[in-house]
Write a protein that binds this DNA or RNA. Structure first.
Lengths: 216, 216, 216, 216
DNA sequence: TATGAATGAGAATTCATTCAT
DNA sequence: TATGAATGAATTCTCATTCAT
């Protein structure tokens, strides 16, 4: 069907939005795969199936593009976190659920890990320059505080647990295992990403977190 | 003291070794700071105070140099690990000591974290190509197995703990916190590297590990 | 005439073609003068008056550029060969004409000789990788077969002459003399490129070829 | 057997000569394979199994080394030419013998062809700088003159043949075929270096030369 | 909005050559 | 005579970015 009239403004806006989304996704994959330093604008354009010039048109330069990708990655995970209804669960179950969610999210979004690595390699410069950094604060910290408080009150949890520390620990247990799985697999000569290995890891992490938090 | 005779062969060999060591150290810093993709051979030469050509003379190319740096980094940490006499301590103390050691090593060697990140970004390709990958296997796994066994026998530890999982968890707790400290600080608006914060983290991690492993 | 409207797509295409042609010509001269190994991409860009990067944009790398130059050189000579209407001449005259054409073409296109030399130094690797190698087959071989057949039939030529052998011999007589004229001049202390010397050579070559092919 | 006394002066001279010869042979092969521009001093040292520095010690630089290689190549072929006792043969046989010798020499010494090509690419600059250029004059020219004269006198050869032109033609017939065999094979899709093809070529060349020179 | 052509600065790597015994 | 270490100047090639429609 050939177009016989000029596209309406609204339609052109839709095209533009779509192009930006396409670029963002392509850039995310490229940055995830090669890091900020190793990513190539050419390849991003190619992945997106769009002209390189257009990337500059929408995102100004490579750094800004990376920043946009990072912000998007945070928006995505935060959105998923928001969907978690942890407060509907009993405290211990809520923690198990959180460990599981974190693990599964990282598994499903390996690019999130490498993007985070890249961001930190650059000392989070891109976040600091982002006006939205604060929006990236996880809603989970507050949820976690509430869960811990409930658990303490019902006598099942120990007291004095810092939700931020716990959040970092939960993330760290999944993160290190997955982010370094290649290195670890090479060194230990053991496939850490087999279904069995993954199950074992999840069980272990739940045990660690609950072992720590449960009163006895 | 000015030299009045020609250096012996042995001495020139020492010069060569020294040059290689200098290059390796310079490369380690550069790779740690900028990642593999962002590192510049020019800067490495400059940091080393040696001619760029010499790097190629000894290390062939950037990839091989990175591999050499990685191997050296592993040798360094393994050497420190070897010095730990964990078996001289009571099981619980041994675990505390290990958490502490890991934390302090990462603090003292931040380059180790970024090198590890870079290595994994490249899917541990450099390790796989290294003949020495297996030598990088941590002696700690076996030590840890022994400690867990002793603790189980004396009734203080729970049973069924996989030493490798535990090793990964101990590393992960420190690693994530330190590797992502910039991002986390930016998002949470809290300085995670103050003396106080670091103390709190160490305490927390010991609590987590021992909470998990101790019988009650 | 200053341009007052934007160039059409078609016109920009012509610009691209023109740039490629300019590069090709510059490269041909550089390769002819210095050989493949001695040619410098910088100099080619300079000769072409175009940015070095553009060479890579269009031709990928030095090797591919050389291949393109070689293909062009063959296209050029084949085009001239096609214009020869040898079959309109009597057999003996046709052979004389061919010897003369070969000689004059090499004289007018000394770069063809050195390009051929370079190609052979590299064992014709560039031709083998060219999909168009077969298109470079000279139309002269068939023409020559026809001429020899006619001469044999009219009783003036001997029989059993392989047109390919004869083609190679005709080329070789000119080629060696011109390609090695510097060496030969140096050794024999005689200027082989004076007008007189060139005339003598052409006469000699015609004598050799016709002496061979004519019945008595 | 370990040496227990210092080598005599004479013996050291022998070592030195041997080293120079080894270098020269290695350089000849390298230059023949890659041309002057493509040859690598490193590879020459490696081929020779000697330290690169030694090459400079004996030959000053790459250009001078190439010149030495070239001179040696000429010395070698001239030496073989000297062994030819053409004047012991009947004129026609002598010419056949010469065609055959040239062909076989080129076949046995393919490096001679590429060295000649390289020398000419550089406009014989290396020969002109050589004091021995004149010594490289082939003894064959005079022999050829004598043969032609004898043939003319006994009525078998035509008169007025320039020995230098004939020499160049004889060389050219072999040279072009062999020097460009890769290109020709690629273009004509015919293996020019099979035993059969080589026999045919030799027969053809003898026919051409004798067909030209014989009275009828 | 979209694009092919073009570029300057820079990056990895190479190379002939010299140093210091 | 012989050698391993070291170097400065290229050289090929890459990259983010801009031009001109």
């Amino acid at each position: 069907m050939t177009r016989d009239t000029a596209p309406a403004t609204e339609e052109r806006q839709r095209d533009a939005d779509r192009s930006q989304g396409t670029i963002l996704a392509a850039a995310r994959d490229e940055f995830a795969e090669h890091g900020l330093g190793g990513a190539r604008m050419d390849r991003i354009a190619e992945r997106a199936g769009l002209n390189k010039r257009l990337i500059y048109y929408y995102f100004e330069d490579k750094e800004k593009l990376f920043q946009a990708v990072l912000e998007q990655a945070y928006r995505d995970i935060r959105e998923e976190e928001h969907k978690l209804r942890l407060l509907d669960l009993k405290p211990a179950d809520a923690l198990r659920r959180l460990v599981e969610f974190t693990w599964n999210y990282y598994l499903a979004h390996p690019e999130f890990l490498t993007l985070l690595n890249s961001a930190n390699l650059h000392r989070a410069r891109h976040l600091q320059e982002s006006k939205r950094a604060r929006e990236m604060n996880s809603p989970l910290i507050e949820m976690l505080a509430e869960i811990l408080e409930r658990g303490r009150k019902d006598g099942s949890f120990r007291g004095g647990v810092d939700p931020l520390q716990l959040y970092v620990s939960i993330a760290g247990l999944s993160y290190f295992y997955l982010s370094n799985s290649h290195t670890l697999s090479a060194i230990f000569g053991r496939d850490l990403l087999s279904a069995k290995a993954k199950n074992e890891r999840l069980t272990h992490m739940c045990d660690v977190i609950l072992g720590y938090v449960l009163r006895n």
